[in-house]
Amino acid sequence: MNAEISAVVDKIQGMINGFIVLLPNIVLALIVFAIFFFVARTIKKVVKRLTLNRRHARNLGMVLGRLAQGTTILVGLFVALSIVIPTFKAGDLIQLLGISGVAIGFAFRDILQNFLAGILILLTEPFQIDDQIVFKNFEGTVENIETRATTIKTYDGRRIVIPNSELFTNSITVNTAFDNRRLQYDVGIGYGDDIDRAKQLMLEAMYSVNEVLKDPAPDVLVMDLAESSVNIRVRWWINPPRRADDLKSRDKVISAIKKKLVENGIDLPYPTRQILFHDQTQQTDGDRSGTFDTA
C-alpha cells in the first residue's frame, strides 16, 4: 500500500517538476501568441481602413482583413506550440488535419457552407452593409456581414441573424439597390364619376407632394372594375428609397389624393351589402309546415 502511494506521489512530483521546467516556455509562448493576436487585429483594422471610403472595395477589404487576421493567428499558434513543444512541427499538424479532413468536413459541413457563402457574398456584393433588404418574412437594414451569418436590424428594433448559406441560395429583395424606387397605391372611385377627371386630380395631388420625383414622372392607370368601385392605381418615384422615405411619401400622397378627390366631389365608395328580410307568413307565402320530411 505504501509502495503504491509512493508511486503516485512520485508521478505527481514528476508532473509538477515537468510543468515547472516548461513554465518559462509556456509564458514565452503566451506572450508570442498575444503579440501575433494583436498584430492580426491591427492588420484587419488597417485593411478595413484602407477600403472604408471605397464603397465597391469595402466588402473586399472585409474579406482580406479577416483572412489576414485568421492566417496571422494560425501562424502565431504554430509558433507558440513550437516554443512549448520543441519537437512539434507544423507539418505534423497539417498531416493530422489531412487525415481527419473528411471527418471534420462532415462534422462541420453547415459551418463550412456558411463560411464559403459568406466569402462569396462579400466578394460578389449582392447587397452591402446599410442596405435594406427583404428575405422571406424578414425585412430590415443590414448591420453586419460576417463569414458565418449576416445580421439585419428590423424596422421595429429587433436583430435577425441569418445564416449566409440561406442568403446565398435564396432570393433576396434589395430595396436600396438603386437610387430611385417606385411606389404604388390603388384608389377606388364610384362608377358614376368621371374617370379622366379623377385621374387628373390624382396627378395634381401627387405633384403637390415634395417627396414625389418629377422625373420619372408619376402616373395613374385604371386597373380594375371591381364590385363597388373603379380601381385606379397611382404610381410615383422617391429618392432616397429607404423605408422611412417610403412611409413618409406614402402618407403624404394618400392624404393629398383623398383631400383632392373629396374637395372635387369624387366619390370614394366602400363595399356595401344589402340584406332583404323576407316576411314569411301563411297569407303571403302559403303554409310551408310540410316542407321538410320528418320521417
Score class of each variant (00 low, 15 high):
Met1Glu: 11
Asn2Ile: 06
Val8Ile: 14
Lys11Gly: 15
Gly14Met: 01
Gly14Glu: 14
Ile16Arg: 07
Gly18Pro: 01
Leu22Ala: 11
Pro24Arg: 00
Ala34Gln: 04
Phe36His: 06
Phe37Ala: 08
Phe38Ala: 01
Ala40Cys: 03
Arg41Ala: 07
Arg41Trp: 04
Arg41His: 05
Lys45Phe: 01
Val46Ile: 12
Leu50Glu: 07
Leu50Met: 14
Asn53Glu: 12
Arg55Asp: 12
Ala57His: 15
Leu60Phe: 13
Gly61Met: 11
Met62Ile: 08
Val63Trp: 03
Val63Asn: 08
Gly70Trp: 07
Gly70Asn: 13
Thr71Lys: 00
Thr72Asp: 08
Thr72Val: 14
Val79Asn: 00
Leu81Asn: 11
Leu81Ala: 10
Ile85Trp: 14
Ile85Glu: 03
Lys89Ser: 13
Ala90Val: 13
Leu96Phe: 15
Leu96Ala: 08
Ser100Val: 12
Ser100Phe: 14
Gly101Thr: 05
Val102Pro: 05
Ile104Gly: 02
Gly105Ser: 14
Phe108Leu: 09
Asp110Asn: 09
Ile111Gly: 05
Leu112Tyr: 08
Asn114Phe: 03
Ala117His: 11
Ile119Leu: 15
Leu120Asn: 10
Ile121Glu: 00
Thr124Met: 04
Gln128Arg: 12
Asp130Lys: 15
Gln132His: 07
Gln132Glu: 15
Gly140Thr: 03
Val142Trp: 01
Val142Pro: 03
Val142Ser: 00
Glu143Arg: 11
Asn144Asp: 14
Ile145Lys: 10
Thr150Ala: 01
Lys153Ala: 12
Gly157Ala: 02
Gly157Arg: 08
Arg158Asn: 14
Arg159Ile: 07
Val161Met: 05
Ala177Met: 09
Ala177Val: 10
Asp179Pro: 08
Arg182Asp: 07
Arg182Cys: 07
Tyr185Phe: 13
Asp186Thr: 10
Val187Pro: 10
Val187Tyr: 09
Val187Ile: 15
Gly190Cys: 08
Asp193Glu: 08
Asp194Thr: 04
Asp194Met: 06
Arg197His: 08
Leu201Gly: 08
Leu201Ile: 11
Met202Asn: 02
Met202Cys: 12
Leu203Trp: 09
Glu204Val: 00
Met206Thr: 10
Ser208Asp: 05
Ser208Arg: 05
Asn210Thr: 12
Glu211Asp: 12
Glu211Met: 11
Val212Leu: 04
Lys214Phe: 05
Pro216Val: 07
Pro216Arg: 02
Ala217Leu: 02
Pro218Arg: 00
Ala226Trp: 05
Glu227Arg: 09
Glu227Cys: 00
Ser228Trp: 10
Ser228Gly: 00
Asn231Val: 14
Arg233Ser: 09
Val234Phe: 05
Val234Arg: 06
Trp237Ala: 07
Pro240Ile: 09
Pro241Lys: 01
Arg242Thr: 03
Arg242Lys: 12
Arg243Asp: 10
Arg243His: 13
Arg243Met: 07
Ala244Met: 05
Lys248Cys: 00
Asp251Val: 05
Asp251Ala: 03
Ile254His: 00
Ser255Lys: 15
Ser255Pro: 01
Ser255Gln: 11
Ala256Tyr: 04
Ile257Met: 03
Lys260Ala: 15
Leu261His: 07
Leu261Val: 06
Asn264Met: 01
Gly265Ile: 05
Leu268Lys: 05
Pro269Tyr: 03
Tyr270Lys: 14
Pro271Tyr: 06
Arg273Asp: 02
Gln274Asn: 12
Thr281Val: 00
Thr284Pro: 01
Thr284Tyr: 06
Gly286Tyr: 06
Gly286Trp: 02
Thr291Tyr: 12
Phe292His: 03
Thr294Pro: 08
